[in-house]
Amino acid sequence: MTAPSPTAAVLIIGDEVLSGRTQDTNLNTIARLLAALGIDLLECRTVGDRKDQIVDSLNALRATHDYVFTTGGIGPTHDDITADAVATAFGVALPEHPDAVAILARRYGDDFNTARRRMARVPEGGTLIANPVTDAPGFQIGNVFVMAGVPKIMTAMLEDVAPRLRTGAVVHARTLRVSGVGEGSIADILTAAAKAEREISFGSYPFGHGSVGEMGTSLVVRGRDAARVDAAVEALAAALTAAGVAVAPI
């Protein structure tokens, strides 16, 4: 029997995201990586720079998913409290990690001040995540990966994270484009397809509404068995065609 694919959640941390000052792109980057590794991303939460909220969210997510990825709040300023919150969530101390101290000391030299030393704090038992952009490391503790919020840095950190993850069966996806028809007009056909093949996911995504030009619906068929996905797409396309709906693969 094939083992189930690993599951994951993302915890985005930062008042700047909730205020709208910063647009998060890290979720998309993480989601694409996990999809390529066959890991199911099932949940995402966004919280501000509030320790209790971070602790509660982290404990809930790490108890229900194989992996949790956090972004944000590991810089040198007073509101960078992610390391403190993670240590509290795991019930461990938050000492300076000697390797992190050495990395940062080389990076900053005489400018390695008290604020920058905050970035060397790692919950007891944690291991470092390399940061080839600015050197200041992230860290892993248990099934939690703590990374920077700056997208360029977070993306670079993922290169060190990816080899640590257990992979699963990759999800295959096919798309059909239905032109000139809204999703409400084909909902019954899509529902019947989903009932006929319960191991396959069928998604409906309308386009062109409220704008000049072509309108229609993109139908995305997803599953881990490529042959079953292909068969489901062929069956769906045939049902749409029989109903007089113009359909084309993408």
Rank of each mutant, 00 (worst) to 15 (best):
Phe90Trp: 06
Glu214Lys: 13
Ile81Val: 10
Val229Glu: 02
His97Val: 07
Ala9Gln: 02
Val101Lys: 00
Glu96Ile: 02
Ile103Thr: 03
Gly91Trp: 00
Ala63Leu: 12
Ala136Pro: 02
Ala63Tyr: 08
Gly48Pro: 05
Asn113Val: 03
Arg117Tyr: 06
Pro151Thr: 12
Ala246Thr: 12
Asn59Gly: 12
Gly14Ala: 11
Ile186His: 04
Gln140Lys: 10
Pro98Asp: 08
Phe145Cys: 02
Thr191Val: 13
Ala3Met: 13
Ala242Met: 09
Ala192Ser: 11
Phe145Met: 04
Thr25Asp: 09
Leu94Phe: 08
Ala130Leu: 14
Asn59Phe: 05
Pro163Thr: 00
Ile12Lys: 01
Arg50Asn: 13
Phe90Ala: 05
Val150Trp: 01
Ala83Glu: 04
Gly91Leu: 05
Ala227Gly: 10
Met215Ile: 12
Glu234Ser: 12
Val220Asn: 03
Ile12Ala: 09
Arg50Ala: 14
Val245Asn: 08
Ala173Gln: 13
Ala93Glu: 07
Asp160Phe: 05
Ala248Phe: 08
Gly184Lys: 08
Asn131Gly: 06
Ala235Asn: 10
Ala192Gln: 11
Met157Gly: 00
Ala100Lys: 08
Met147Gly: 07
Ala248Leu: 11
Gly73His: 04
Ala238His: 09
Pro4Asn: 11
Leu18Lys: 06
Thr29Glu: 15
Leu41Trp: 03
Ser211Arg: 13
Pro163Ser: 06
Ala130Pro: 13
Arg121His: 04
Ala232Gln: 07
Gly216Lys: 09
Asn113Glu: 11
Ile13Val: 11
Arg224Asn: 02
Val101His: 05
Thr70His: 04
Asp79Phe: 09
Leu41Asn: 10
Lys152Glu: 15
Val101Gly: 08
Pro76Ala: 00
Ala248Tyr: 02
Ala3Gln: 15
Glu96Trp: 03
Val92Lys: 08
Ser185Cys: 13
Leu128Ile: 06
Ile189Tyr: 01
Asp80Lys: 11
Val68Ile: 06
Arg224Val: 08
Ala115Val: 10
